[in-house]
Design a protein around this nucleic acid. Structure first.
Lengths: 188, 188
DNA sequence: TCGCTTTTTTACCAATTGGTAAAGTGACGA
DNA sequence: TCGTCACTTTACCAATTGGTAAAAAAGCGA
């Protein structure tokens, strides 16, 4: 998982993603600048509240220049979301089926909390997207998040069934951990 | 707490709030329609994502007609927030200092959860506002929310000090209750 | 029914916003 | 040194959006 674009021209035109995504030094640098700026602006104002002008100003580039690197406002947002999805899911992913149940769960909470404090903008970005019903995250939600949650929920359910932890609804547990840690990020 | 406007013309002009807010049947009905529509639209799209046209359509009124009743988009939003603030704070307010500590806290959680499920739009409205840093709620936050939280936090701290409940940071407790219940509303 | 007030509509704006076309600039290999 | 291609800027647009002015249409008390 790295980009988020659907396709692209073949050669002459714009430098969009492609099976073999060769990127010049300038492209790498400017795409990074744009995504950094977009994270700042989107997380502060939400998708609709953010403007390309703000992102451009924050990135130190002109608006048309930004549209040279991305297909549009939505493409920037989608790219950002997809790129951060892995980081976002990582704490849950790391939960180890072989570990000591309670310890694993607490470690997960700790990782989530650390992340929410270390990356409040990323947290807000996701919170905002979820509040709007995740209109630009649908495919990825289904493909990555849901299977992962299913898997870990089954794991926790197994622990509970084996009497190794108190019986809880695993989904509710995961869910309230999200909610709490995310809100700590929201308030900084 | 009822309105949210700052002042208003004296007689002939528009029907804004005033020391003595006499409202005709039509005014009462249409203001209600507008605020209902605004709750729907603002909670779904956030402040900047919502448009007056959407609110007007939802309310079944024309845009200029809406601006006859409210000073502008922001005034509608502020009025809505202030009007719902009491409802919003009510569950916490009801926490009884004389009651059995654990029971009171659990009852509070239950009330919050009930409310989040019964009024998901209101919950989302607040969540959205908080995510943006509560730019249109500042004064009320300070004046109502903060004192109330201070009061109840002190209460919980007292219970903990007296050994009647396990020692916890009261603010964190209140906070995580908010977070969790609110997120249940976000996902419906 | 008349005359006055309240409410609603019609017809507009100016500003903002996402986006484009095309000309210009610069780096770099032949 | 020249041509080519990658990158940037300038100059625009069309659509949307919050908001206004003023005319038209209800309401309504006397």
């Amino acid at each position: 998982m790295k980009d988020g674009e659907k396709s692209g021209g073949k050669a002459g035109g714009k430098p969009r993603a492609q099976p073999a995504v060769k990127r010049s030094r300038i492209q790498t640098r400017n795409r990074k600048r744009i995504l950094d700026a977009a994270l700042e602006v989107f997380s502060a104002h939400g998708f609709r509240g953010a403007t390309l002008d703000q992102i451009a100003a924050e990135a130190g580039l002109s608006k048309p220049n930004i549209l040279y690197y991305f297909d549009g406002k939505e493409a920037i947002h989608v790219t950002l979301l997809n790129q951060l999805m892995e980081t976002w899911l990582d704490p849950l992913e790391q939960m180890n089926p072989e570990g000591e149940p309670l310890e694993e769960i607490l470690a997960y909470v700790r990782r989530k909390l650390d992340m929410a404090q270390a990356y409040p903008r990323e947290s807000r970005l996701f919170a905002n997207e979820i509040l709007q019903g995740a209109p630009r995250m649908g495919p990825h939600l289904e493909k990555r998040l849901k299977p992962l949650v299913d898997e870990k929920a089954a794991l926790i359910a197994g622990w509970a069934a084996a009497g190794r932890i108190a019986p809880v609804d695993p989904r509710h547990l995961i869910f309230s951990i999200w909610a709490t840690t995310q809100h700590y990020a929201d308030f900084e």
